[in-house]
Design a protein around this nucleic acid. Structure first.
Lengths: 193, 193, 193, 193
DNA sequence: GATGAATGAGTATTCATTCAT
DNA sequence: TATGAATGAATACTCATTCAT
């Protein structure tokens, strides 16, 4: 593909990411996406077979950056305090999800909607790995299930972001709320003082 | 409204609840809803101004039952063990959300989508009230924020159900996972043994 | 279906027959068909699943009348002269084909185009039956193959109509030409004088 | 035009002939034609004003070869037997038409479709000339109209090929059928034995 | 109240054609 | 000359909504 083509494709992905997040998958029209990208509607189809392939490309693109960030987390084990690290991780998860959850929520709910090899949906793995590493060096209680604890921590920012995205939910949750909730959960995870 | 009209309206709300939950707001067609309700398409518009009003009616109807259930929870304070109660509550929340979250996720994400008096989206209030009641009788640590703790507990089943609804998410979460995660969080909430 | 619905469907078939014959299958737009029928475009889809089903309906409708006519022909054996009868039959075939050939030519040439149970495309059968009946009573030479003779006779009006339909063909053929050609062919079919 | 340009043009005409015959005029896309010719889509428009001009070029090109073949036929008068010659001619006509009829059928049926100088559509002239030549030397009955007889003979292979091209027609016709039908017609054309 | 036929604006997608390189 | 990216009008089809019965 020519350089110009590459550039157009990138513009399309960026524009589509905005429109999908804002309008949802069904609400996003190819017309609006094209307008947002500053190209003609037909141009979409030079770069993507159809709307779904464009969505998949957006999804992959956004998740890629997130994955990189998440992968680094386990290496923090043993540094600073667990509380600091977990809050840092949770903040990172929140940032990640703020980008990915709108797309998740936007995704078609319909039956015929499985084709994306969604390798990159927010995953517990890095958090589990981190907690296990801390368990080995005694900074996290060894008698709890790392996976369960990870899910408890993960759920907080996820719920916060998801609720924030859902226009009908009346429970607004701030980062302070998230922090406080995580701290509460942490009290059960850290070794007794 | 005649009795017959009343019955038709109820049939429509029930049918629409099924179809919305299954197909999402955008994916649910008035044709399918009408067929599911066993009425003609035009009949919908004798009872509801438009599709959105029908959705609002469904939402209100489903939340009503849930609210009743949730409201009873605070009165359990002091009975059985906190752990039992919280797990019971969390199970209840999960059941509630299993009905409401699909609708939340199904709801139009579009900008012009605020008109529903969404009074009834899953709320922390009963859980907060319960925890505060238990704090007063010393069965929950007094040095934590009841609201934060409630959110930490609430987030777990919410995240589980929401992830289960999102077709692209690869993280499947079972009730056992939910229970384990809640137990982990509880360890930080209950008084040290 | 209501009476009004039946009437609309009929109007659609009639209008579509005109438009298909004039523009070909690909050239006929649903918009023009709807306009020709005096209905909205969407109305087509209340009565037919898609454009192809509409085409199939047109084809069936037009062929139906033709079939009735063709079926009566064999019973003419033994009446009048063979020459008169054959010319009458050929004239009938020409009339039939004048309606059907434009549709045949209009039909999609594409690979995925087999679904019509085309029971009614111009068929040799009645002509063969007629010739065989005349052979039995000695008014047609017994030493020729009735099927071959029927095809020779059938080909003449068919070729005339088809050439007339093809806008690039420069060979204009009149009914007089058809009659003369059939008479020529007949000389080989009738018993020697 | 440069030599390279000439070559490209020829490749385009050859590729287009294949694609038009296979897909029909409407079904043939410039994209597929370009791919079949191994050139870029834009290249078509350096050599032809538009798709129709390309079609016209194809048509002219294919007919040219056919014309050459047909023109030689009258010179066969007096050689071999008439029956042999006519069957040979008819076979030639069938071969010719097998190339041209698909294009004829493929051609746009639409009203605005006359601009091609269609000089070369299958013509009766050589066959008429041949029959007249044979009439002069007494090998064909003098009391029949050569033009009518020619059309009767011409119609058979034409109908056979055209029916074979039309996807909805159920009447499959083999070369044996064509031969038998021509023999039947010939019996009326040759002098009584 | 209920029906279901009719509507028409809106959707994703195609494709002949143009144009900058 | 050739490329291939970009265009945008046109297409078949959908679906919430209206309306005559």
């Amino acid at each position: 593909m020519t350089e110009r083509g590459e550039a157009t494709k990138k513009r399309l992905v960026d524009a589509a990411a905005r429109v999908f997040a804002e309008r949802g998958y069904g609400g996003a029209t190819t017309k609006e996406i094209a307008r947002a990208a500053g190209v003609a509607e037909g141009t979409i189809y030079r770069h993507f077979a159809d709307k779904r392939e464009l969505f998949a490309a957006v999804f992959k693109d956004r998740s890629a950056a997130d994955l990189e960030a998440a992968v680094k987390l386990p290496s923090l084990a043993g540094t600073r305090t667990v509380r600091e690290n977990v809050l840092f991780l949770v903040k990172a998860i929140e940032d990640i999800e703020r980008e990915v959850v709108p797309l998740l929520v936007a995704a078609p709910v319909s039956v015929d909607a499985q084709p994306i090899p969604a390798q990159a949906v927010p995953s517990l793995a890095p958090l589990v790995a981190y907690l296990e590493a801390e368990q080995r060096i005694g900074r996290v209680r060894r008698d709890i299930d790392a996976r369960a604890a990870a899910f408890a921590l993960f759920a907080v920012p996820f719920a916060a972001v998801a609720l924030g995205r859902l226009p009908w939910a009346r429970t607004a949750v701030s980062w302070e709320d998230v922090r406080a909730a995580v701290e509460a959960a942490l009290d059960g995870i850290l070794p007794p003082r």
